[in-house]
Computed example of a mutant assay.
Amino acid sequence: MSNLQQDPAIRSLLNRMPKSIQTTFTDDQLAHLKIAIGARQWGNHAVDCRGVIKLFKYRYYYVVLAGRNKRELSAKEQRIAKLGQALVLSVVLTLSVLLMLLITYLVKSALGIDIFEGYSFGVWGWFKGLFN
């Protein structure tokens, strides 16, 4: 059995045919079948949101798909994925540190501790104003 016959899209297509027909396809024919059905083969996604928006006399469709990537990535795609991961991690770490600093400052202010006598950033006053 060739690698193409192991492909999930091709396997799904061949399974709907009689066994005597399944074995008659060449690898070249299977490759062209995969290209032909590839545009329609979406699979199952964790997020699959599709809809239509009517704007004046035109209708526009949108598709949002998200899920685990099961494809083999090229070297360029791997670099982009690592860059994206680094960016997301940097944003999450930065926001976490800023949140911890804010919480620490609010606790310090609630306890009445002044680091610089007579000086305030105004965060405590703003925070108390949210609940008044």
Rank of each mutant, 00 (worst) to 15 (best):
L93Q: 05
G84H: 03
L89S: 11
V88S: 04
Y105L: 02
A75N: 10
M100E: 06
L98G: 01
L101Q: 05
K108Y: 11
L106V: 04
L95P: 00
Y105A: 01
G112Q: 01
K76A: 12
K70W: 13
K76N: 09
V97W: 07
I80K: 01
L89P: 00
T104N: 09
L95H: 06
L111K: 08
A81R: 15
S74T: 15
L87S: 10
Q85S: 14
A81N: 11
A81H: 11
E117I: 07
L98H: 02
K108R: 15
L106E: 01
A110P: 00
G118I: 03
G84E: 15
L73N: 10
A75G: 06
I103R: 03
T94F: 09
L102D: 06
L98Q: 03
E77L: 02
V88Y: 03
R79H: 08
I115P: 01
D114W: 10
V107P: 02
S109A: 15
M100C: 11
I80E: 12
L93R: 05
G84V: 06
V107A: 10
K76T: 13
L101G: 09
D114H: 15
L83S: 12
L83C: 13
K76W: 03
L73C: 05
A86L: 12
V107L: 14
S96V: 00
I103W: 01
L83R: 10
T104S: 12
L98P: 00
E117T: 09
V88R: 05
M100Y: 12
F116Y: 14
L101M: 11
V107I: 15
K76L: 11
I115Y: 12
A75M: 07
K70F: 14
K70A: 14
L98W: 02
F116R: 13
V97Q: 01
L102E: 04
G118W: 01
G112L: 00
A75H: 06
R68T: 13
L93A: 07
S90W: 08
V91T: 11
Q85C: 13
L87Y: 12
E72A: 08
L73T: 03
V107D: 05
I113G: 01
L93K: 01
G112A: 01
K108N: 14
